[in-house]
Simulated assay, not measured.
Amino acid sequence: MSTDKVTPNGKSPYRTRRAVFAMTALISAFVALAIEPVARKHLSGSNEIDLGVVRLRLAYNSGVAFSLGDRLPSAIIIALTALVTVGIAVYAWRSIPQSRWVAVIGFALIVAGAASNVVDRALDERVTDYFHTGWWPTFNLADTYLTCGFILVVVSLLFESTRGSEPEIQRPQFE
């Protein structure tokens, strides 16, 4: 006797959520990491591309968010951000079976953004940034993933709190 719900195709929705989480995180991280060398190549020197609301301008961040900790040894920053990234990934992996789809995508984007920045920093001890607004510090696609992912998780939590906190009761199925 099993209490797991099963979709019409015979798969557990929990596995589906985890698969979507993993694929979204992997594809998003791959895209962010693939853009980094392109940005370095085309925006090096004083090259800048004006896209209206945002300009593409090359910058490097040896610290974490808003260049905080930029004087710390890069090995410390890499180790700490990697540790935080792994912690978030483990928490997400364990919580997504019971999470709303919005949170699943949000967690995937957070993990992709954090992992992309860790890998980028590990390659040359700094993160490559290229989106510049003029009113906000320069950032990259991975930072956008982090922000959007955080917003999606918060929205999911807000919907959860308005729905009520009663857990869903799963009754055993007798065959």
Rank of each mutant, 00 (worst) to 15 (best):
M1L: 12
T3W: 05
T3N: 11
T7A: 10
P8I: 07
P8V: 09
P8C: 03
G10V: 07
G10P: 07
S12K: 04
P13C: 09
R15N: 13
T16A: 09
R17W: 02
R17C: 03
A19F: 13
M23I: 15
A25K: 01
A25N: 04
L26R: 01
I27S: 01
A29C: 14
L33Q: 11
L33I: 15
A34Q: 11
I35L: 13
E36S: 14
P37W: 14
V38P: 04
A39H: 00
R40I: 13
R40N: 10
K41M: 09
G45K: 07
N47T: 14
N47W: 04
E48R: 07
I49W: 04
L51D: 05
L51C: 11
V53S: 05
L56Q: 02
R57M: 10
R57N: 13
Y60S: 09
Y60I: 02
N61S: 14
N61E: 11
N61F: 11
N61D: 12
S62D: 13
G63L: 07
V64H: 04
A65N: 10
F66Y: 07
G69Q: 10
D70N: 15
R71S: 13
R71L: 10
R71A: 14
L72P: 01
P73I: 09
P73L: 08
S74H: 13
S74K: 04
A75T: 14
A79K: 00
A82S: 14
V84T: 03
V84Q: 00
V84I: 12
T85C: 02
I88W: 06
I88A: 11
A89D: 01
P97W: 01
P97R: 02
P97M: 03
P97E: 04
V102P: 00
A108I: 08
V111S: 02
V111D: 01
A112M: 06
A112E: 06
G113D: 05
A114I: 01
N117M: 05
V118H: 01
D120Y: 02
D120M: 05
R121K: 15
A122M: 15
A122E: 13
D124V: 02
D124Q: 10
R126D: 07
R126M: 10
V127T: 11
T128H: 07
T128F: 08
D129R: 09
Y130G: 06
Y130E: 06
F131Q: 08
F131E: 06
H132R: 05
H132L: 04
T133D: 12
T133V: 15
G134L: 01
W136S: 08
F139E: 07
F139L: 11
F139K: 10
N140T: 02
L141S: 07
D143H: 04
T144N: 06
T147A: 14
C148N: 03
G149I: 06
G149W: 04
L152M: 14
V155H: 00
S156K: 01
S156F: 01
L158M: 15
L158E: 06
F159I: 10
G164K: 12
P167F: 10
P167I: 11
E168P: 00
E168N: 08
Q170A: 10
R171Y: 09
P172G: 15
P172N: 15
Q173A: 14
Q173N: 14
E175L: 12
E175I: 12
